[in-house]
Nucleic acid binder design. Structure first.
Lengths: 347, 347
DNA sequence: TTGTAAGCGTTATCAA
DNA sequence: TTGATAACGCTTACAA
């Protein structure tokens, strides 16, 4: 492996000059410059980033820790992060915690030791995930989607409004018993979406029935199992609000498998789009988040922190959008969503 | 930020002893050991991996470069890579080249300079993608899914057999004009799948019609557009073989939008599963690859290279599996697939 | 403008 | 068993 010394020797200059040429820092005699460039080329020289990082204490790497790399929500976020990061000269390291606090802690530890420039994280737990080692090292952290226990910059959608929007839509379409299939409450998103669901019930004068609230993991399996339970109930709900996309796949699967007609027997509203919501029968009504933009926003925030922005931790809240499709009754809903948009989004 | 010197000072020992304790290398007096551990704890000491890497010339990082992080095929691969890598003490850095040769080159350059331990890559081009900078530095490279121009270890599915399997199934179900919607031929997978498709036509005594072969990008949009063209043809095909999952979404979308009955009017077979193939109407017949296992295999190969395995570059080929569902005619197909399994998989 | 040399944090050699 | 010290490859005062 060739080092800067090899290039210096070949070009008959000092390492300092090589560094200056290669980094375009400081003035260099064009003749020497040419010699350096030629030598570097000939020797296939590549800077050793480990050496540079040790010296400059900066890695130009952003890390993105997501709880489920197979969830399109997070890969869309990733695209947003990458696009902004790359343009600013940063590489993105994507880490998959797999909803496993141990794996997550390992990644946080590794990234701390690795001295990455910044971290965007959607934590496995809004109560327990510990990013203090990063913060202590001065590594900037931005929470995305889910809150962190520590007060940090935080990019999210207005989950409460989103859930209320979905639930109100179901109620105004005629549903009287709306089930909510939710993730476990250690995630802030699950808590907020539950709150929005309850808001809507209350506003409609409906009693919240704990038997209609399911707290499973945010995975397909969880949605499937919860739906099977729902189908077994004697006082069966006439609508389901499912609070994440992976669970939605399970719910839809279970409903189709049991030939439950949507929306006639059960209306369905999901959270986050998936490539298939438009091609199944019936198409599925969802609450949509601007995922790509959220990834971009988190990255911009990180970059501004690098540039010395030391203002208070900021919460950046995006507005959700209810996309009406055929798994829920459309007509009344359209009117409602108009009303809601005006009242809530302007709030 | 605390360094090993701070710990040494606090524990009143040398940095060498601190290093020995923390890395469990060499014998240390238990009394000193306790002092070191305590000091490290108290000071919140974390090893600086940049320093360590510079010294040891090993990063314990594997990189996985994929052309589309939003494709479930690659995220499933990623899971396989991660699981093996983490168990062996490596972290995984996932890089998204986005089918963009420039982005890909940037990542390769960055990873070269960063001295990662090994790279698994599914290249944007089997002709042009240049990993020589990695190889020159002694960084091991394993190709996955798609071949590299350079001869390296290579993990793939038997694409040719897979495509033949799919096409033969369509033909034996009664199709006489089978269209093939394919990726562009700069990817080895596209070339091999085309070959398998042609094999099957030939074997059945059918003439290959170039008008039935579409070469678009491996994305949803490409599948959608190609299908629209197909639907406009006066001598319309009675079957479609689409060679990747993202394109399959587009194909299915277009067929549903135009109310084409499957399999009555057009039979459909796709490549790679997606979460929705089981829940749409009709369910979609696909050729399945063992994605997770392929990720694991690539990583095992990398690890064995680290351990001094210097044998010839190896090609690891997995067998595909035809999963019959309702978008193609089932009965005859079942018999055929039996026959094929016996004859081809044992080959 | 160019070169010398220190130092980033770590590990590992060698001497004690 | 422990410690002093060199070295990894790079950037950057500072000196020339």
């Amino acid at each position: 492996m060739k080092t800067i010394r090899d290039v210096a020797a070949a070009a008959k200059v000092s390492t300092a000059t090589v560094s200056r040429v290669l980094n375009k820092s400081g003035k260099v005699n064009p003749v020497l410059e040419k010699r350096v460039l030629l030598a570097a080329e000939k020797l296939h020289y590549r800077v050793n980033l480990t050496g540079r990082n040790l010296r400059t204490k900066s890695t130009q790497i952003l890390a993105l820790i997501v709880p489920d790399v197979e969830n399109p929500f997070f890969t869309a976020v990733c695209r947003g992060v990458e696009d902004v990061a790359n343009r600013a000269g940063y590489s993105v390291m994507l880490c998959n915690s797999d909803e496993d606090p141990v794996k997550e802690a390992d990644y946080i530890s590794m990234l701390t030791s690795h001295n990455v420039s910044g971290v965007i994280i959607s934590p496995t737990s809004s109560k327990l995930t510990d990013v203090s080692s990063l913060v202590r090292r001065g590594i900037r952290v931005v929470a995305l989607d889910r809150k962190l226990p520590l007060k940090t910059d935080y990019v999210r959608v207005d989950n409460r409004t989103a859930a209320a929007l979905a639930t109100q839509h179901l109620i105004s379409s005629g549903a009287t018993r709306v089930a909510c299939i939710n993730g476990d409450r250690s995630k802030s998103t699950a808590k907020e979406r539950l709150a929005g669901y309850l808001d809507a019930l209350k506003e409609a004068g409906l009693v919240a029935d704990p038997k209609l609230q399911f707290f499973v993991d945010f995975k397909e399996e969880g949605g499937f199992e919860a739906t099977l339970e729902i189908l077994k109930m004697k006082d069966r709900p006439d609508a389901i609000f499912v609070t994440n996309n992976q669970m939605m796949t399970g719910v839809f699967h279970a409903l189709r498998e049991h030939n439950v007609a949507m929306p006639e027997q059960i209306s369905l509203v999901g959270f986050d789009d998936l490539p298939w919501v438009d091609i199944v029968t019936p198409t599925v009504t969802t609450v949509r988040q601007p995922t790509y933009e959220m990834g971009m926003a988190a990255t911009y925030k990180l970059l501004s922190r690098f540039n010395g922005d030391n203002s208070e931790p900021q919460e950046i809240v995006f507005e959700p959008e209810l996309v009406l499709r055929n798994s829920s009754v459309k007509l009344k809903a359209a009117k409602l969503s108009q009303k809601l948009k005006v009242s809530q989004i302007q709030a």
